[in-house]
Design a protein around this nucleic acid. Sequence first.
DNA 1: ACCGATATGGAACGCTCGTTCATAACGGAC
DNA 2: GTCCGTTATGAACGAGCGTTCCATATCGGT
Lengths: 195, 195
Amino acid sequence: MGRPRTFDEDQVVEAARRQFWETGYHGTSVGDLARATGLGKGSLYGAFGDKHQLFLRVLDEYCAGAERGVVALVDGPEDEALDRAHQWLLRTARSSTTRGCFLAKGTAELSRTDPEVAERAATTFGVLVDACTALVEQAQRAGQVDAGADAHTLGTLIVTTQRGLEALGKGGLDTDSLVSAADAAVAGMRIPQPA
Amino acid sequence: MGRPRTFDEDQVVEAARRQFWETGYHGTSVGDLARATGLGKGSLYGAFGDKHQLFLRVLDEYCAGAERGVVALVDGPEDEALDRAHQWLLRTARSSTTRGCFLAKGTAELSRTDPEVAERAATTFGVLVDACTALVEQAQRAGQVDAGADAHTLGTLIVTTQRGLEALGKGGLDTDSLVSAADAAVAGMRIPQPA
DNA sequence: ACCGATATGGAACGCTCGTTCATAACGGAC
DNA sequence: GTCCGTTATGAACGAGCGTTCCATATCGGT
């Protein structure tokens, strides 16, 4: 029944993401998207609605992936929880020099004028904070973080650091400085081990 | 000789900044700018060149102001240097929920495709890091920060935290969490005072 | 009072935008 | 083999874009 599609939907979303990532929402034309995905304009509209809906689709999948990546950090031995958070920060410090985070770019450009984007972003940031809070609680139980500290505050601080590393990487700071800063951020919340 | 201008150039730049701030570069049309500034399109082009030049002018003045604000923090008693950094972070945590930082928005949208924007942003971030590094050095001499730590690393960490607070504020996190995170960030680098 | 020079504001230009639509291509059902 | 429902394509459309241009206004200098 009906002519079958000749494209893979996930591949198209991925190509659209690359394009939006490079040139932003308003900086990307539907013609650009057609070229990037290999589809005709009509096909794009038929499959995804309009430009805005396609962007939301791309954003949603990106956010879901980012959430999955951080939530996965929560699983693991409690005495390595702080190390897992550390690794997460280091990954950001090392990788963000290229193109930055898609969510950060989308939020910066649109969250002020686009409620749907703002809401999706807020949800993701909330998930990040919750996951990092859980990591801090693990580290507290393992005796690596002061048990008297507020876990939610320190979880927020970890996400704050991660977002800051991303912003500065995109802004042109050198990787070495960012890696050192990530190390220092974790060191600042770790209880010194008795020698 | 010649008809004098009827507008104040600084006021026009300020109005343009508000508009770019709200809707971004690609999301702002020259018609929007004409309406926001009250000038005709011809006057805008006559006074500022084209849209891109006007944006760079706006960005440059914003960056200069941001640099001045942080460099001013360096002046003051050494034993209050860490407190001044703290206040800077608190200011960001409390204010960024509204519209975010213009530099962050401009960098996110354009730094990848616009070398002039990228360069101006990188310069500003460098100035921020240098100023915060100086603050850390003061705090080290005052005995409030471990003198063995690398001042540049901790200076970078302060700027990282500031950028992160900005990003999360724009992303919808509540002010109280951000303020707590700012407190915790400073607490993490302060040497505990003997009771 | 006149002139050269600059500012003003909006009409006009060519182009690109996001979106729609007509038509062709295709695969299963009968 | 002939429909039928779906997909694919790019031409077509009106609106809006960034930019230019020009007729008019307004100044300082003579």
